[in-house]
Design a protein around this nucleic acid. Structure first.
Ligand SMILES: [Zn+2]
Length: 321
DNA sequence: CGAGTTTGACCTGCGC
DNA sequence: GCGCAGGTCAAACTCG
């Protein structure tokens, strides 16, 4: 990491971030382009924090406001307090993300064969077939992480929620869990279940605030939102895809799309310069909150709007300028 | 029975 | 080189 977060490309206003505060219990903050602050060549990340009310163990993300990033209002006083609370978490996450982002610019196209051979040498008595397969896989993952041009965009979200399982519209298969150092909470690894989609996400709770779930998405979905809760079939609620064709291109989609599920939800596109994210920095949402019994716990739109603010997480509180 | 989860082993990168 | 921590694999298991 040589790049200093310092000179954040202010012009790019990459630090667009929001905080949605719906109630004392529900806060949503979205940070865009978090990573770009540390590096300017490729990877784009989004850091967000959103709070959804815990709903019988299953939550949906769809309570956001429709508003282009650059148009965010100034942070209202109350939010400051909130930010203060979240700040430690954000900072923590910040450093985490930073650390996670490989910056060593390895040559993009060279297939690290050395690694391959090394591995093989070690295992030289075993079934080559399998080895090759395994190696290939590992190489792949390694490569994808180290290769500069291949890095997948990452989007981290902080979610204040009692439940870990956030419904983001896609189906995920857990493939691992690890204890996190300095944190009593484990980190879970998920992969999109779509066959050709390699999107991954990590889930962990903040050690500072156990009520905050940190979700980091990596990669871009290459398919429409599949939807839902286990049991229900995916790809049906195409209504959304139909109404918002832009969100269902054949091209890779932004990591996060909070749509379907309800008539009122949010599709969130962030990313920035990444070609895959043509409409970055825009949060779409159809608001029309449906009156639901659970609406009591649901976010209140007006509140959301009022509390929407930029976060100061990057220490570059633009709104202070 | 298929899809998803659990969990220990394994691999890799990195700092010392 | 060693140990640690993060990340992934895959067999076993669970659930609908
Ligand atoms: Zn996917």
């Amino acid at each position: 990491m040589e790049k200093k977060p310092e000179e954040v490309k202010t012009e790019d206003s990459l630090m667009e971030s929001l905080t949605f505060c719906n109630s004392d219990r529900h806060v949503t903050t979205c940070f865009d382009d978090f990573t770009s602050i540390f590096e300017s060549d490729g990877e784009k990340s989004c850091l967000g924090f959103m709070d959804i009310h815990d709903n019988n163990g299953y939550s949906s993300l769809f309570d956001l406001i429709m508003m282009p990033w650059p148009c965010l209002p100034q942070p209202p006083p109350p939010l400051r307090a909130l930010d203060a609370i979240l700040d430690p978490c954000l900072q923590e996450l910040s450093s985490e993300i930073t650390a996670n982002i490989p910056t060593n610019p390895n040559s993009p196209s060279t297939s690290s064969t050395s690694t391959d051979e090394q591995t093989k040498a070690e295992k030289d008595g075993q079934q080559q077939d399998q080895d090759e397969h395994t190696n290939a896989k590992k190489q792949l993952k390694t490569k994808s992480k180290t290769q500069k041009g291949q890095r997948e965009p990452r989007f981290a979200f902080l979610t204040k929620s009692e439940v870990d399982l956030l419904d983001d519209g896609y189906r995920w298969r857990k493939y691992g869990q690890k204890a996190v150092k300095n944190s009593p909470f484990p980190r879970s690894y998920y992969r999109c279940t779509a066959s050709a989609c390699g999107v991954k996400k990590r889930l962990e709770r903040s050690s500072n605030d156990s009520s905050i779930v940190v979700t980091t998405y990596e990669g871009q979905h290459t398919h429409p939102c599949l939807v839902m809760p286990r049991g229900s079939k995916g790809i049906n609620n195409m209504s959304i895809g139909q109404t918002q064709p832009d969100l269902y291109p054949q091209q890779p989609l932004p990591p996060l799309y909070y749509l379907n599920l309800k008539p009122s939800l949010i599709s969130f596109a962030a990313g920035t310069n990444n070609p895959a994210f043509p409409d970055s920095r825009t949060i779409y949402q159809e608001k029309s909150f449906r009156p639901s019994p659970a609406s009591t716990g649901l976010v209140r739109d007006d509140e959301l709007l009022q509390d929407m603010v930029r976060s100061q997480m990057l220490k570059e509180p633009k709104y202070q300028q």
